[in-house]
Design a protein around this nucleic acid. Structure first.
Length: 346
DNA sequence: TCTGGGGTCCTAGGACCC
DNA sequence: TCTGGGGTCCTAGGACCC
């Protein structure tokens, strides 16, 4: 028996759930995003495999997606339904013998297990999830969390893929560094400037050079990612949120303080709903603004004392806006409230 | 051409204190 | 007159993820 990490990822999750409640959608190009209005400022949350064949990807603007795939069926995001399906999937994983489950999002989780045959266990997971929910998933098997996570993509759809220290560089060595989970386009470009273009280059990089560029913690961390190293143990400690936020993209840009102020009040009210539900107070307010020429600003302020009063949160956000002294049209506003940590910390 | 909404974590640098 | 080194707290902002 040895310890393994499995990464379970539902296939085309939102689209699959929509197909379950409307079987006529099966085999058709389905796009889930926004409020289901193709003319709205919104993005694709999930596209079915049929829609992906037209080049539709999650994160893509709906307008562009519908242009690429004019015949697609566009559906609004229906959170409660996906949350319920997700809960069923996670409960199924937690019921697997010997499983330690770390939930990553609606549609994915790490499963830690001691076994001689992780591939058979992965197939057992797929069968159990299918039986309980009629949903298909892919499973990555690895000796670290990073390797399991990266493996899943190679198992999609409905497959199982094993990736360990022995096969890491064979599979990824020649790829650009952002093929690794945790390395995005910015880090990839900075690494390339340093002479580390591929995962193989990064795997051989020395910590000192990486620390000099990215800092003493992040530098060596990036090096470990390049080697597929890092955490090996799945942690099922229940999640405690650090913050809650609400943001809105306005279909028509807000112009001037007079339009910004009521919008901030609405966001503050919504944020406070989350605080009340958890019974925790806000200790720091973050304001996020996206201006019309596409760029984003974040500002934050610590409160003199914790509060759950929406008026205080709105006023703090407005003060942060005023301090910007920038009256360009606003297309997105967000307020995030950092909460007082629970007794004993996180 | 068009780019959501929900999060987490890390770092740089200034203010302030001893 | 010149001016150390360490520490903490705070804000701004970068980067990543689903």
């Amino acid at each position: 028996m040895s310890p393994w990490v499995l990464h379970v990822d539902l296939d085309q999750f939102l689209a699959a759930v929509e197909i379950l409640r409307n079987p006529e959608l099966a085999g058709k190009p389905v796009i889930v995003g926004g409020r289901g209005d193709p003319n709205e400022r919104a993005v694709v949350s999930t596209a079915s495999y049929e829609a992906r064949e037209f080049g539709v990807r999650s994160g893509m603007a709906l307008k562009i997606a519908m242009r690429k795939c004019p015949g697609a069926i566009l559906l609004p995001v229906d959170r409660p339904v996906y949350e319920a399906a997700s809960a069923q999937v996670m409960a199924t994983l937690k019921a697997m013998p010997g499983a330690v489950v770390e939930v990553l999002g609606w549609d994915e989780a790490f499963v830690g297990v001691d076994t001689d045959d992780p591939v058979a266990y992965a197939h057992d997971i797929q069968a159990a999830v299918l039986a309980a929910t009629s949903l298909h998933c892919s499973v990555g098997v690895g000796d670290t969390l990073v390797r399991a996570k990266v493996a899943t993509d190679y198992g999609k759809p409905r497959g199982v893929y094993v990736l360990t220290a022995d096969t890491w560089l064979d599979l990824l060595g020649d790829l650009p560094t952002d093929a690794v989970w945790g390395i995005g386009p910015r880090i990839r470009d900075r690494l390339a400037d340093l002479g580390y273009a591929t995962v193989r280059d990064l795997a051989a990089a020395d910590d000192e050079a990486l620390a000099a560029e990215f800092g003493p913690t992040t530098g060596p961390h990036i090096g470990r990612l390049g080697r597929g190293e890092g955490r090996r143990t799945v942690d099922d400690t229940p999640w405690v949120a650090r913050a809650h936020g609400r943001e809105t993209t306005y279909q028509q840009d807000l112009v001037g303080r007079d339009e910004v102020e009521p919008a901030l009040r609405e966001l503050a009210d919504a944020v406070v709903e989350d605080l009340r539900r958890e019974g925790r107070a806000c200790m720091r307010v973050h304001l996020k603004i996206r201006f019309k020429p596409f760029f984003t600003v974040n500002r934050s302020r610590k409160l003199s004392e914790p509060t759950s009063d929406p008026a205080v949160i709105a006023a703090t956000a407005l003060a942060l806006y005023d301090r910007l002294e920038d009256d360009r049209p606003v297309r997105l506003l967000g307020i995030r409230s950092e909460m007082v940590p629970p007794e004993g910390g996180y």
